[in-house]
Amino acid sequence: MTTSGTEPDTGAPIPYVDPVRRDLQRRKAIRDTVIASVSIAVVVVAGVALVTSAAGWPLVRDTFFSGEQIGSTLPEIASAFWLNVRIFLVAEPLILVVGLAIALSRGTRSPLTFPLRVVATVYTDIFRGIPTILLVFLLGFGVPALGLSGVPNDPLVWGTVALVISYSAYVAEVFRAGIDSVHPSQRAAARSLGLSSVQTTRYVVLPQAVRRVVPPLLNDFISLQKDTALVSVIGPIEALRQAQIDSSFTFNFTPYVVAAVLFIALTVPMTRCADWLNARSARERGAGGST
């Protein structure tokens, strides 16, 4: 069976596109790609030329991008950066658990849980109001200074605790917004089937809420990954602190750039992942049903 080429074959399962139009579209796509490639090349070349031809460039290059410095400090800074990663890996799950617990506490209705509600509200109010770095100082220096027995006095532990406390207050609000975004009719439908309040939250409300807050949570992850550098102020030698040490010997700033690149190497994939999830959930909302 053949089609004439200009007449749409309505019986065909494949979508019919006018060949002339398809040709035009293809040519336009090629032209667009060429223009985009050329324009980006021009901008990059011009930018590099402009920067490298500037009078101060050799000094800037030696101060910030010294190859020799990169070679000598990268291994140290990279291994110090591993501490940032570990702080992140320990803090993040704790933040999710504490944040969710606070969000759920704030959402309870029973008079019995009133104290829980108050505590959760006060917690978020207080810890969202305190700058994270202040909390790191306060706990990282303050608690070990108490010299309590049975309590760890490693500043690293307390720096991490400070991050957990501060971030869980934010994450709790993210979870709460997600829970509030689930339409009350979902709860009514679940209750009308005989599910208890707790079961309704567990099986109907939370799964929908969590799905919706994944993108904003990823944004918080990214910012936590950067804020692990805050514990450097109380002593632990993570990437920033290591860069600072290296730099103080040579008065060269390349180690800082090395540390910055390490942070970027981790946050950029996370950002792309968040963008992708955001786009996907926007698509789902656009195409999705009424509920």
Partner: peptide, 15 residues
């Protein structure tokens, strides 16, 4: 609620 079934105008299926 176990013994009384109810269906609403807006279907309220769990998406």
């Amino acid at each position: 609620r176990r013994r009384v079934g109810i269906v609403f105008q807006s279907f309220n299926l769990f998406p």
